[in-house]
């Protein structure tokens, strides 16, 4: 066997992840509810992405078409200004989703960095951080958000950052406890004996073993972010845009609930939000199955 021969033989971590992914796919698809969740989310994402081209938003008001019931022209009827509701629904999820993803990414990153470094360094640093997190958790988050957005005009990126920062404590605690249990594993002790770097410990030893846990928290964070946004939009504390939360706000303010033909105006955004959350909940459930060692069959590989 020549050396070059062997060089090409060594497979990298990719191989492992491919296998792992296949396994994850199998577990998730074996759970019907989880599968439905994935499809639901996929449909919502596809509609949101294609909407500007397929269902373009017509912002002009048409007084002749106010509060029309669903019809062929207007799948879900029209709003108080005679605009198509379906077009608004199709376009109103994009920013919500984007923001949720950005929030989740930022908060998970904060969570991983703090949650791994803190127990690895340990001692006073860990204690102080844990104390801060406990204090932080006592702050009522939503009212704080309301106050903040009342004072400042928040762009969506800033909102995502604020949401992420506000939720660092919970995530930090979750990931910290997971790392603490991983820390007891012999392979981390072995890494300590071999004097491997902190970077190696966090990103090569610990994080890869928490992927399912992290993805679980990811969907959880997305849900929180969506709730928070919808709440703020509903209260009218964020800039007006086409958005399910804003739609709810306007429908409420325009008295759509009192208008029998306008039921869809208030129901459609509410349904859209529920479906999005539901898809995330179901995906979460499938991910929990991934967590369940009885369903994971790494050993039999």
């Amino acid at each position: 066997m020549t050396k070059t021969n062997q060089e090409s033989k060594i497979l990298t971590g990719k191989d492992y992840w491919l296998k792992k992914l296949k396994n994850a796919f199998r577990v998730i698809t074996s759970d019907k509810i989880g599968l439905i969740g994935f499809f639901l989310l996929l449909i919502i994402i596809v509609i949101s992405l294609l909407a500007p081209y397929v269902f373009p938003l017509d912002t002009r008001s048409d007084p002749t078409k106010i509060f029309q019931p669903p019809s062929e022209d207007h799948l879900l009827g029209t709003d108080h200004m005679g605009r198509d509701i379906w077009a608004q629904i199709a376009n109103g999820g994009r920013n919500l989703l984007l923001l949720a993803v950005i929030t989740a990414v930022i908060s998970i990153l904060i969570g991983i960095v703090l949650g791994t470094i803190s127990p690895l360094i340990g001692g006073k640093f860990d204690e102080v951080l844990l104390f801060l997190a406990d204090v932080w958790l006592t702050i009522p988050r939503f009212p704080l958000l309301v106050v903040l957005s009342g004072f400042f005009r928040l762009s969506s990126l800033v909102l995502a950052l604020i949401l992420a920062i506000l939720s660092w404590a919970g995530l930090y605690r979750n990931i910290r406890s997971e790392v603490l249990s991983l820390k007891e594993r012999d392979y981390l002790e072995a890494a300590e004996m071999l004097d491997l770097s902190m970077f190696h410990l966090i990103f090569k030893e610990i994080t890869p073993n928490m992927m399912s846990f992290i993805s679980l928290n990811f969907t959880l964070m997305m849900r929180h972010a969506i709730y928070a946004q919808v709440g703020l939009f509903f209260l009218g504390l964020l800039p007006m845009e086409v958005n399910w939360g804003v739609m709810l706000n306007i429908a409420w303010a325009q008295g759509a609930i009192y208008h029998p033909d306008a039921t869809m105006f208030i129901l459609a955004p509410a349904m859209a939000i529920s479906l999005l959350i539901l898809s995330l909940v179901w995906i979460n459930r499938a991910l929990e199955n991934l967590f369940n060692p009885a369903l994971r069959t790494d050993k039999s590989d």
Binding site: I10, L11, G13, Y16, D186, Y187, E189, K204, N209, D298
Partner: peptide, 17 residues
């Protein structure tokens, strides 16, 4: 100074080859 652990299933990181 190095150490060899008892449990060969816990002492190797499952995500590394």
């Amino acid at each position: 100074v190095q150490m060899i652990h008892q449990d060969p299933f816990a002492s190797l990181n499952p995500t590394q080859n």
